[in-house]
Simulated assay, not measured.
Amino acid sequence: MATLQFPMRLPADLLVELGELTGIHWNSWELEPVICDAIRRYMQPPAPAAQEQTSPTSGAGYQWKQLYLPEGTRLRAAFGRKPYFAVVTGTEIKCGERFVTPSAFANLQGGGNRNAWKAVWLRFPGNEQWVLADVARSRQQAAIARLFAGAEG
């Protein structure tokens, strides 16, 4: 694959925001594949998966430490710029025909020791936005802290 070398101008606040979302410092070359992946996804979004008929009040889902993934949550990771996906089905995470943990899913490709919180992106049912698992966990922890802060007194 040919690579063209020319400068691109991006707003500083956008790069800072992207760095906060991914955990990669905004002036690092490590952001390049993230930016390329975002552009590719924008140009060719993945086809929507067939949604299984589930009741939103069924309570089914996967408890990943502090983070609850309701049934229908999609997981995405990538290796070598090639994405792979899984979905929460019942109380398990299913990737193809296999049931996996978030860590096993993050490390399905490449055989490395990747941190699932930093490598897995989540798309919750009814939401079109993908969010990094570590960001979702931080938001959940902040929500819980606010809940208990209001109970003190």
Rank of each mutant, 00 (worst) to 15 (best):
A2Y: 06
T3W: 07
F6H: 14
P7R: 12
P7D: 12
M8L: 15
E17N: 11
E17W: 09
L18A: 05
L18E: 04
G19L: 05
E20Y: 03
I24S: 10
H25M: 04
W26Y: 14
S28L: 01
E30D: 15
E30K: 09
E32I: 14
V34E: 09
D37K: 12
D37E: 15
I39E: 07
R40S: 15
R40H: 14
Y42V: 03
Y42E: 14
Q44V: 09
Q44P: 00
A47R: 09
P48F: 06
P48K: 14
P48L: 12
A49R: 14
A49E: 15
Q51L: 14
Q51V: 13
Q51E: 15
Q53A: 14
T57N: 08
S58K: 01
S58G: 11
G59I: 04
L69Q: 02
L69A: 00
P70A: 04
E71I: 00
E71V: 01
T73L: 02
R74V: 06
R76S: 11
A78M: 09
F79N: 06
F79A: 11
G80V: 00
G80W: 01
R81F: 02
R81T: 10
K82W: 04
Y84A: 08
Y84R: 01
Y84Q: 03
F85C: 12
A86K: 02
V87A: 14
V88H: 10
G90S: 07
G90D: 06
G90R: 10
T91N: 15
K94Q: 14
K94C: 09
G96Q: 11
E97Y: 00
F99G: 02
V100C: 12
T101Q: 04
T101E: 02
P102N: 11
S103P: 02
A104P: 02
A104S: 11
F105N: 08
A106E: 03
Q109G: 10
G110V: 02
G110T: 05
G110W: 08
G111F: 04
N113Y: 12
R114P: 01
N115H: 06
A116H: 07
K118F: 06
V120K: 00
W121Q: 10
W121F: 13
L122H: 07
L122S: 06
R123N: 01
G126T: 00
G126H: 00
E128T: 03
W130I: 08
L132F: 10
D134M: 10
A136S: 12
R139I: 07
R139A: 13
Q140V: 07
A143R: 11
A145W: 09
F148D: 11
G150K: 12
G150Y: 07
G150I: 05
A151Y: 11
A151I: 11
G153F: 03
G153D: 08
